[in-house]
């Protein structure tokens, strides 16, 4: 039994995947700039991707902010630095936790929904039907989702940031004995524009990843219900991993000084 054969096969499969994804990406991005653009569908997808993700993103951001405040208070307490809670909460939320947690939640919700919908259209030949009706499926299905995700993710994260900071504020003032005025003043004094803006850049990138992985996996799903299930799982897993990896690289680029 040659142990190199399966390793080599896995490696070539990976290379083929990357190649297919790159070709898909090139086709999608070039389609974004060529008419027709389906404005109505972009609006519809903005509602589905952005607006309907608000409760999920808001709730997770709120509890994350609250837990962050508690942890920093308890950790800071060890060497008498518990007053630093507002500064660390706002920094942690806007730079890291806001975009990453929103990205992961939206990946679970939206990448899965996109992959399942497009995957079902693939296996029931609806995508082929689009082609026979002289409608480019990339432009009709993929481009609106991609644009909607890239535009709405920063808005979602901006709202999520505010709710996250509010979560920290409520926990701090209600159970940790911070005074409301001092907490808000420390938050606003410490926060810089670039903290928030860097998080919004990340959010746009995560939106791109989410829509791309949902559409790519859906488009390439095979077989019946099982194939669509596999595509959905792959979409969420690959989107989540790519979000975390991209977060690291974006952090190192955005804060390289």
């Amino acid at each position: 039994m040659n142990i190199f054969a399966p390793v080599g096969r896995a490696f070539f499969t990976l290379l083929a995947q990357i190649g297919r994804l790159t070709m898909f990406l090139v086709e999608v991005v070039s389609s974004c700039f060529r008419p027709p653009i389906y404005w109505y569908h972009i609006g519809q997808q903005m509602m589905r991707i952005g607006y309907f993700s608000l409760p999920v993103v808001g709730l997770t951001a709120f509890f994350t902010g609250g837990a962050l405040a508690l942890q920093i208070y308890l950790g800071g307490n060890r060497y008498g630095a518990e007053a630093i809670v507002p500064q660390i909460v706002v920094l942690g939320i806007t730079r890291e936790l806001g975009p990453v947690i929103a990205g992961l939640m939206v990946a679970g919700r939206v990448a899965a929904a996109i992959a399942a919908e497009i995957g079902t259209m693939r296996v029931t030949e609806q995508i082929d039907a689009l082609t026979t009706l002289a409608t480019n499926p990339i432009k009709y299905l993929v481009v609106p989702r991609l644009i909607a995700a890239v535009v709405t993710m920063p808005i979602l994260v901006a709202i999520g940031d505010s709710i996250g900071v509010m979560g920290g504020y409520i926990v701090s003032t209600q159970s940790l004995g911070f005074s409301s005025g001092i907490y808000l003043k420390n938050t606003l004094d410490f926060m810089k524009n670039e903290d928030v803006i860097s998080g919004l850049y990340k959010a746009a990138a995560f939106g791109f990843i989410i829509a791309l992985m949902g559409c790519y996996n859906g488009f390439n799903s095979k077989g019946g219900a099982q194939g669509v299930g596999a595509a959905t799982t792959n979409a969420v897993v690959t989107a989540s991993i790519l979000i975390l990896a991209a977060n690291y690289f974006l952090t190192s680029i955005l804060f390289a000084k």
Binding site: Q126, D128, A129, N136
Partner: peptide
């Protein structure tokens, strides 16, 4: 391709209606 496809109509096996 679109111009050629306008000459065609197709009935799919599972009808492939947009749900």
């Amino acid at each position: 391709r679109d111009k050629v496809l306008r000459k065609f109509g197709m009935l799919f096996q599972g009808a492939a209606l947009f749900d």
